[in-house]
Design a protein around this nucleic acid. Sequence first.
DNA 1: TTTGAATCCGTTAGT
DNA 2: CGGATTCAAA
Length: 862
Amino acid sequence: MTTSTPLQMHPTLDQLLSTLNTNQHQAVTAHPFSKLQIIAGPGTGKTKVITSRVAYLLLDAKIPPENIIVTTFTKKAANEMIERLRTMLDNMNLDKLMIGTFHSICFRLIMRYGKPLGLSGFGIADERDKEFYVKEILNELNAEERELFSGREGEKFKGGGKTSLEPVLIPGPVISLISSLKSQGITSDQYSQSPSKDKCLSLLYSHYQSKLQENRVLDFDDCLLKCHELVSKFPLTNIEHVLVDEFQDTNEIQLQLMYKFGTNVTIVGDPDQSIYAFRNAQVINFQKMIDYYQRQNQQCSIITLDHNYRSTNDILIFSESVMKQEKERKSKQLVSQHTNDFGSPIYAQLKSEYQEAKWIALQITTLLSLPTTPIHPQDIAILVRSAYQTRVIETELNSNGIPYHMIRGKAFWSRKEVTVMMDYLRIIANENDRVAVLRTINYPKRGIGEKTLEKIDEYLKLDVNHSVYEKLRFAVQGGVNLSSKVQSNISKYLNTIQQAKEKLDALRDDHTKLPELFDFITSEFELTKEWEPSQVENINEIKKLLSEFTPPSPDDDIPPKNILGQFIDSMGLNEAVEEQKQSRHAHYKGQVALSTIHGAKGLEWPVVFVPGLSDGLLPSIMAIKANTQEAIDEERRCLYVALTRAKLLLYVSWYVEDGDKEERQSWRMQVTDPSRFIEFIKNKDKKTGLVHIFRQKDKVKSLYEILGKRCPDFDLDEFNTVYKEKMNSILNPFNPKGIVDGCDNGADKKVGFQSASDVIHTTQNKKQKFEPGNESVTNKLGGTQPHRKGLYGNLTKDKIKPMLRKTGTQLISKPSNNKAPPYVPSRRPGSSLGTKRVSGPLALPSIANRGKGGTMGQYQRE
DNA sequence: TTTGAATCCGTTAGT
DNA sequence: CGGATTCAAA
């Protein structure tokens, strides 16, 4: 199938190919002008294969880089791939290789060629913008249109009928239904002509599109849809090969785009790892692709990679037994290339999320306290289904002095301070960003409330010949009737924008000065003083991204936006350089990774924890409620992805809550059952994970060896005794037997049952902060202990707060600094763990973090 | 009319 | 818990 004999091959390529196994070799060297599916299970060298295939196309088939499109799932994956390629082919200029996410490639194409469609200079509407626009169109419906919604078709758009008798139209369903249509490639025009259309939806879809058009923005789905329209009308003529990575996560419009991009395609993916159906991804694309080419009498070859280089066989068997439960699945035979095995996953059933977190912390400290341990924090990951699950774990890691790092998800970008900052950058970059103006004009408070805002917005919508910025100037100069206070406040706001714009112009394209501009904005708009230290930290993350930002390929004939505008587009597509190439490793070094399963896709660690294997968490409550096989299957694949991230040691755990004995976050549904996906281990030893590799000296030895260290001689039995005692103190915290290493853990001191007078103080002038969730008590050993139920009788916090307020009494709490807020990236908690501790007081919470800036602070009110 | 506090309410992943 | 909504006080 190769186009040349090995002798004629490029020496680099030759060398490259020699490192591949038979299947990989076959996949890489498949005919360049053909259709190919590579089914790549976890750890089968997928990235290596796709990268080598690109190299093969460049070197052997001599396809110029600009004639190849490679789509990846994330910008990060694209960066990694291009780095690998640069290393492989050090002298080749790859700047023109079209590589990136579908969204960014499409956006680039639209920027470059979109003029005939009237799309030049468009920006990106993010999720918040979408919601803003949808709310707007719902408010702008006239009486006649509103009438449409009284029928059955309108039902699904209604909600919130609890408080007001009149049901209200809500944006959620509108957004997701429109998105679903778009990802199937259905435009609003097409939909409005469909005989089976939903009249309400069709109406909203049209309004929504006009709204986007008016504001000159594209939403994520539009990037794909409009690009499809573009390449249909004006085909790309130069593209000789299209490669699609993570094919299992493509949706219909992406499949159609792939067909349109070029006739020769290579796709790589794994149906078992399809976990993005919520974004309308469809596994059926594998079959659709085959059928599509079949209809054109063209063959689509399939190559399956089955050598797993990542995980031990035990881990593979375990993961496979999870997947086996899925009906109608083509079972896969992954063969581990490991010769060592460390036994089946270590597991435990616990009583609460707190206990589970403690269990995890114990496992980690145990691993890290092995003599000359071969395992470092950066070798460990904790993967959860939902982002909020990290909170309890973070707290526990903090109090054990375990350094960790959050792999950032969407949550970071929806933090208040982050969105505000982005909005401010947007108004500086773009005179016409109405939404950003409306969202910043009263933050910080400038005395502009709902009514005034309405008046202003009405005025802003009037005249299309002036920019939003100009119109706002006119408004202050008398266009809108405003109080003098508001008038002067807005003037000041506008003047600061003006100054910032001038600064932006002055720095031209010198992006090294962007941080200065950034500081100017935060100080002049008086943003910093609105924020807690931890929020400022988040803002500095943006500043860092801004200073690291390099605009993409300036040699293009794209009408240039200013550099800030380019930065914002890039952020809108979530593709800002997350971390620069080399510093990435240094940055994460010495830190445990904490991530959602979705965020961990494509990554691997020697040690992986998968907690929260309870019904309602995984499968998530939403999937259970949806009550469809597809939803449950997707959750199962999610688990599969999590499990297959592990190379050597896999820890799984779950908890079941019995009644209200344990403190629970009351707003969450009680977890009562282990996950249905792990039925098959429930029958085994249920007692909790005392089953451990440390039982066998030879396993411990080979663990050291495989990690490139020599196992020192040490007393494993003694090590295990310590471990078991600590385990006991977690499982039975009030049992005196849990006393470890001669340290009295205070079982006789009624930990957790102190009197109310300990926490309630009468204060006079001193304004005290009430920190929800922080009323923990410090016990005599320096450990913190959450309040137990019963402390305030039947009173809940919500009830007690106003009572205290009325009597001039306030609830105060000891600043507890080891509480972790959700989603705050990379805090470095105190000292890192020593590696030499063998039998140190692991069960005791570290006090290293005490006294540092309160991390719950960001939710306080003054 | 704006603001801050009280209260209600939902519950997922992220290009 | 935290966002949205409602209520009450400036």
